[in-house]
Design a protein around this nucleic acid. Structure first.
Length: 424
RNA sequence: GGAGAGAUGGCCGAGUGGAUGAAGGCGCUCGACUCGAAAUCGAGUAGGCAGCCAAAAGCUGCCUCGUGGGUUCGAAUCCCACUCUCUCCGCCA
């Protein structure tokens, strides 16, 4: 969330940011609430001061055996009035907090202004899409033909948008997870294995709640949620903490299953591994000083790109425009991998700098010895989404005879297997 | 799931209604002493909000002893609920 004092002092800056994002939110009611809140707060504080001073006096008199009944009577009234004011203040605070949680982050100045994904700006490309001398097949056909992915039984056992991996497919999924984690540990990230279920406070901390509740799976009768990404538990690791400055920057990588309700995605990408209710992902998360977060974003993006380079998968990097930027992000690079079946580049990673937006929500701070606590900057990025990586490998490495060649770096993780052959 | 115990500052720990974010100790920071260090001595050492201020610094006030509520002129201290931790039993991968 944004700093209340910043919104109060620079409403025009916030309004401009909202406009660039294409948001309709008006700040006026919010500013009015804030004015009322400060007024009531000043009144209540004044009365509390009076109560503190007089109560002390009452104590002194009673100890001295003097009369204090008149003061006690006055304080009874003062206390009652304070209680009323406190209730009004609490009510206003709740409304302000709710309003503040609905305001998205301010885009960084380097983010291109635009309406939607068509205005995103390509930053660079890596690799050449392969020229096929036979008609390439989509990954779901390859997966079924090789008997390594089973969508039908996934639907039977769980439902639409669920699948089974089998045999070399299951091993490929596991190989990718291990390969990515090992690579990022080499990049300096400390591996974390997080809970896949978190509480509501954590979801508020990273920005999924209160606005995007319908995108998530919630456990019935409890305020527990299945995580939509490891970003949630890993960023919330340091919620409500003050980190010694010397420990920054902190780098974590984490494997997790990810669960998404995909509300509103009905009919979109219903085939294949691209949009599932459950998928695996290796996530990168950073906690940095505010001064270095944009350098760190470039490095984090490069770390995610390295996975695609080592796998030999052609990709491009795009900078999301203001209209396409996620709610909590100040700047985002998407990595898009080449998918022959789509004939285009498809998102496989999203690397974002949230600046202090999540840190303020989650109250994650750092402190220099002798200094005041300040909010850290948080960043994260997929490194990578595993299901989409499997899809990209199957499609880009498919052979005319129906087999799929295993990228060289994965062969050791596949127990030496170099190729997945069709079953007889 | 059953029974019991507990939650105080960076850490340990005192504190059962009236000066006080809170004795004492440890740790840490700065200073003195020393050629230097140790020891010793001295000073300091939580966070949040509002107001004054362009801002910072500073000053004033309010709030915070797990969380929320209650009693009271006044609560770390009394009452209630919740959360979490620990011990024993049961169950379990």
């Amino acid at each position: 969330m944004l700093d209340l004092r910043f919104v109060r002092a620079h409403p025009e800056v916030v309004a401009e940011a909202l406009r660039k994002r294409g948001s309709e939110i008006s700040l006026e009611p919010f500013l009015e609430l804030d004015r009322k809140w400060r007024e009531k707060l000043a009144a209540a504080d004044q009365l509390k001061n009076r109560r503190n001073v007089v109560s002390e006096e009452i104590g002194r008199r009673k100890k001295a055996g003097e009369e204090a009944e008149e003061l006690v009577r006055e304080m009874r009234e003062v206390s009652a009035r304070i209680k009323e004011l406190d209730e009004e203040i609490r009510d206003l605070e709740e409304q302000i907090q709710m309003a503040l949680l609905q305001i998205p982050n301010i885009p960084h100045e380097s983010v291109p202004v635009g309406r939607d994904s068509s205005d995103n700006v390509e930053v660079r490309r890596w690799g050449e899409p392969r020229k096929f001398d036979f008609p390439p097949r989509p990954h779901w056909e390859i997966g079924e033909a090789l008997d390594i992915i089973d969508f039908e039984r996934g639907a039977k056992v769980a439902g639409a948008r669920f699948s089974f991996y089998k045999g070399a497919g299951a091993r490929l999924e596991r190989a990718l997870i291990n390969f990515m984690l090992d690579l990022h540990v080499k990049h300096g990230y400390v591996e974390v294995f997080p809970p896949f279920i978190v509480n509501a406070d954590s979801m508020v901390g990273t920005g999924q709640l209160p606005k995007f509740a319908e995108d998530m799976f919630k456990l019935e009768g409890r305020s527990y949620y299945l995580i939509p990404t490891a970003e949630v538990p890993v960023t919330n690791l340091y919620r409500e903490e003050i980190i010694p400055a010397a420990r920054l920057p902190i780098y974590h990588c984490a494997y997790s299953a990810c669960f998404r309700a995909e509300a509103g995605a009905a009919g979109r990408e219903t085939r294949g591994l691209i949009r599932q209710h459950q998928f695996n992902k290796v996530e990168l998360v950073k906690f940095t000083r505010p001064e270095t977060s944009y350098e760190e974003l470039e490095k984090l993006t490069a770390d995610a790109e390295r996975v695609l380079q080592l796998l030999g998968l052609p990709y491009r990097v795009v900078c999301l425009c203001t209209g396409d930027l996620g709610f909590a992000a100040a700047k985002t690079y998407d990595l898009e991998v080449w998918l022959p079946s789509y004939g285009e580049y498809k998102e496989i990673s999203s690397c974002s700098n949230f600046e202090d937006y999540q840190a303020r929500r989650a109250n994650i701070r750092f402190k220099e010895p002798g200094g005041r606590p300040r909010f850290v900057h948080t960043l994260n990025g997929s490194g990578l989404a595993v299901g989409r990586t499997v899809a990209a490998i199957l499609e880009n490495y498919q052979q005319e005879d129906g087999s799929v060649v295993i990228p060289e770096v994965l062969v050791p993780y596949m127990g030496g297997q170099e190729r997945i052959e069709p079953v007889k």
